Computed example of a mutant assay.
Amino acid sequence: MADSTSTHTVVPPVAPLAPPTKPDFHPTLAVSNIKNNIPIMLDMDTDRYGTWAELFRIHARSHRVLHHIVPVADKPPPPVTDPTYEQWATLDATVLQWIFSTISIDLMTTIMEPDSTALIAWTRLADLFHDNQNACAVTLEQEFSTVRMEAFPTIAAYCQRLKTLSDQLRDVGAHVNNHRLVFQLISGLTDAYKGVATLIRQSNPLPSFHQARSMLTLEEAGMAKMKPAEPPTAYVATQSRPSVASSQSSDRRSSNRSRSHNSKGHGGNRGNGGGSRSGTSQGSSPPMPPQPQYFPYQHWGWAPPPWAMPPCPYPTS
């Protein structure tokens, strides 16, 4: 009798499905206002492309999206079928918004096209500012060679203008080294800075531009302290305005002289006009009304007595 063996099929347990992983939150999406990090508004008239581009590259590098404007060989854009394409497209659109938010409307309408990427917009901007390099270099070179301190209020403003022009020349391919920048700085100074200019010129090695600027700034502060202090405005006004007491005293003296002159004139007329008839008896003069009394110390707070003052005697005919 043959033994019958029963076979059992073992089914392996099914592993539970892993939940879909959420993409990591990218720091680029946390930027709410790009103008806080790139305060320069790029325009064709201002010609600050070099400064704007450097600030933009620094900001893109800090947020790990530099490859969207500077292509990398080992990091090309993913294909549309790639699962990471959606996140890449979101980040690229964010960088494109950064570009449009920091340029003028004229530049934005010039480089904008449907379905554009951040790299395309970045390349078009670079071409716009690099096409006329030779013409810009000639204009900037002429302005750089004619900068003088007389046109600026302070040393800081004068040095800042020279540094800006040198940066613009560097952006168009005409690099300005430190020696030329320092020599142009001291050649445009006024006569008041001759001593410092001679000291910088005779230094060996020649100081850097920032060191020369610091020396000129200290000299400017020292000359400002040596200027004589002007008197306060209130003191000048007090010295030029006469005192109130002296003006009142002069007014009283002139009034007393006029009263004395009038009294003498009335007495002479009464003595010489005895034959006139004016409704009064001949030889007698009508009583004069009491004259107001002047007290020279009223401006000190002293008041006259409350009783009436007796009239002064007047001469009769």
Score class of each variant (00 low, 15 high):
236 V>Q: 15
159 C>R: 06
198 T>K: 05
74 D>S: 13
15 A>H: 04
177 N>V: 01
294 Y>Q: 15
279 G>A: 04
145 S>A: 08
131 D>P: 00
233 T>N: 06
250 S>V: 01
165 L>K: 04
223 M>L: 08
111 I>L: 03
126 A>C: 00
74 D>G: 13
89 A>R: 05
19 P>N: 15
228 P>F: 02
178 N>I: 00
259 R>G: 04
288 M>A: 13
3 D>K: 04
175 H>T: 11
186 I>W: 09
144 F>I: 10
187 S>C: 04
181 L>C: 10
253 R>K: 06
259 R>D: 15
164 T>Q: 14
312 C>Q: 08
74 D>Q: 09
30 A>P: 03
256 N>V: 00
174 A>Q: 11
171 D>C: 01
290 P>L: 00
3 D>A: 07
154 T>D: 14
284 S>P: 02
65 V>N: 13
65 V>Y: 09
69 I>W: 04
97 Q>W: 03
91 L>G: 03
79 P>E: 09
138 V>T: 13
88 W>Y: 13
44 M>G: 14
265 G>N: 14
169 L>Y: 10
207 P>M: 00
299 H>S: 09
18 A>H: 06
306 P>S: 13
59 H>A: 09
187 S>D: 14
193 Y>S: 13
10 V>G: 08
291 Q>K: 11
228 P>V: 08
42 L>G: 01
250 S>C: 01
151 A>Q: 10
260 S>G: 11
313 P>C: 03
82 D>N: 11
266 H>G: 10
68 H>K: 07
71 P>T: 06
40 I>P: 13
243 S>G: 14
205 P>S: 04
213 R>F: 06
220 E>M: 00
268 G>H: 10
83 P>L: 02
306 P>V: 01
78 P>G: 09
189 L>D: 02
114 P>W: 03
82 D>F: 00
180 R>N: 10
128 L>P: 00
97 Q>T: 04
45 D>C: 02
199 L>M: 12
202 Q>H: 12
14 V>L: 05
2 A>D: 08
43 D>Y: 01
171 D>L: 00
244 V>K: 08
110 T>E: 10
88 W>G: 01
317 S>L: 02
230 E>C: 01
59 H>N: 12
279 G>Y: 04
195 G>T: 15
188 G>M: 03
316 T>Y: 12
184 Q>E: 12
180 R>P: 01
164 T>F: 05
139 T>K: 05
305 P>S: 10
31 V>L: 07
24 D>A: 08
174 A>L: 04
97 Q>Y: 06
143 E>T: 10
152 F>C: 12
41 M>R: 12
277 R>A: 07
89 A>V: 01
91 L>H: 14
100 F>N: 07
219 E>D: 15
256 N>E: 15
160 Q>M: 03
255 S>C: 00
201 R>F: 11
230 E>M: 07
292 P>C: 00
34 I>T: 04
103 I>V: 12
289 P>Q: 15
